[in-house]
């Protein structure tokens, strides 16, 4: 059972949440401008990384707010929780790569 920290309610069991798949998938600005293949890719294709994944969760049995989580798909380590609509935070290791390099 995952323990996920809702940005509002704090840590709650996974069973209180609803999973929403990959985060940051924007609706195409002009769907009519897309080819069938591009539209199909928008509808059906999502990233499926083995590693860190920015994804959406909703606190269904709690405050019912959507938010984003960066979770590792092998270890389930959650490295970031941030509000929907905000960009994915830059991991600290990247920020400081110049210092540590």
């Amino acid at each position: 059972m995952l323990l996920i920290a809702c940005p509002w309610c704090g840590e709650r069991d996974e069973t209180e949440y609803h999973y929403g798949g990959q985060a940051h998938v924007a609706h195409p600005a002009d769907p009519h401008a897309l080819s069938d293949a591009e539209w199909g890719a928008y509808l059906f294709v999502r990233d499926n990384p083995k590693g860190e994944f920015a994804e959406r969760w909703m606190h269904a049995a709690g405050c019912r707010r959507w938010f984003n989580v960066v979770r590792h798909t092998v270890t389930h380590d959650i490295s970031a929780v941030y509000p929907a609509g905000q960009p994915r935070p830059v991991p600290p290791s990247d920020e400081h790569s110049e210092v540590t390099a």
Binding site: M1, L2, D13, E14, T15, H18, Y19, G21, N48, K50, F53, E55, R71, T73, V74, T75, H76
Partner: peptide, 13 residues
């Protein structure tokens, strides 16, 4: 399990 996972293990519930 509803979420993506490569860990060959799932949730207890």
């Amino acid at each position: 399990d509803s979420y993506n996972g490569y860990g060959q293990r799932g949730s207890f519930h």
